[in-house]
């Protein structure tokens, strides 16, 4: 088989215009108001990603978790079709920012009708009111290309709360303890991304994701991450989403690090099966 390609053009919204401005809620993990990014889709569409930016943290050098929802529907009747998790650790000079800025969905969301309003909102784990700028990327149907899409929403584990804190082993590159991300309940999942926040500087990390009961976890993937000056790629979409989490399976994470007992905050991007 050949590599799957995408012939169809990608579009943006707002198109050729300033990103919309979203003002966060003043209460942690409380949704902002929705802000419209596209009044009416020109055709049925497939959501391929989100672009976002904020200077929040520029002066505070603060760390925080947040989520962005993309929704369809009229004002006050919005339905979330995708949630993107981000982690921000230090925002430096005015030209730079901490979190990833454009998140490309490994599995685009095919759940947008024609003539539909699209909007975005934000929540995060602090009360800072610095605004965020957002836009979205999408394809117009019918698609010429055969790519894997889903009508299921992009989800986050754990949702609407800070990710789990993992601690590396007491010796450099020693395994830390497993920390549960999901209890042994829920649908089968496809893992589409790992959100990683290193709290300390200048270290190399290995993140194991595992499934199974406490004490008998089996590693299902290992992600290597480098951090310097407390900067790191804080969001890693998995181009090959991991399709080996069955229903009612516990998910856990552990970490090894070049610095003993280092800590990090982890959350996952997932889509429930069947896709």
């Amino acid at each position: 088989m050949a590599i799957t390609t995408l012939i169809d053009r990608q579009y943006t919204a707002p198109a050729g215009a300033d990103a919309v401005t979203v003002t966060p809620a003043a209460v942690a993990w409380t949704n902002s108001a929705y802000v419209e990014v596209l009044a009416s889709t020109p055709a049925a569409c497939v959501l391929t990603g989100v672009t976002f930016y904020s200077i929040h943290g520029f002066t505070e050098s603060t760390a925080y978790d947040g989520e962005i929802d993309v929704a369809t529907g009229a004002a006050s009747s919005e339905v979330v079709i995708a949630t993107v998790r981000f982690y921000s650790r230090l925002v430096f000079t005015s030209g730079q920012i901490g979190p990833i800025l454009t998140y490309v969905f490994p599995i685009p969301i095919d759940n947008i009708g024609s003539g539909v309003r699209l909007s975005v909102r934000l929540r995060k784990n602090n009360t800072n009111l610095t605004v965020w700028n957002m836009s979205i990327n999408y394809l117009q149907k019918p698609l010429t290309s055969t790519i894997l899409t889903t009508a299921k929403p992009q989800l986050v584990i754990p949702p609407a709360t800070v990710g789990v804190t993992v601690t590396a082993g007491g010796l450099a590159w020693g395994n830390g303890l497993w920390v549960q991300l999901r209890a042994a309940t829920g649908n089968a999942l496809v893992i589409t991304g790992v959100v990683f926040g290193a709290l300390s500087a200048n270290a190399d990390f290995e993140i194991d994701l595992g499934t199974g009961g406490s004490g008998s976890e089996t590693v299902i993937t290992t992600l290597r991450i480098a951090a310097l000056n407390q900067g790191n790629p804080q969001h890693q979409p998995l181009p090959h989403p991991l399709d080996n989490v069955t229903a009612s399976t516990r998910i856990a994470v552990r970490m090894r690090c070049s610095t003993a007992s280092n800590t990090a905050i982890i959350s996952l991007m997932v889509i429930e099966k069947p896709l």
Partner: peptide, 25 residues
């Protein structure tokens, strides 16, 4: 002729590659 469009924002020191949803032939 435009084949596709990528959206980005103020460039980050830690963000160096802007990918398409799938390879464009």
């Amino acid at each position: 002729t435009v084949l596709t469009t990528l959206r980005h924002t103020q460039v980050s020191s830690r963000f160096t590659a802007l990918w398409l949803p799938a390879p464009l032939p």
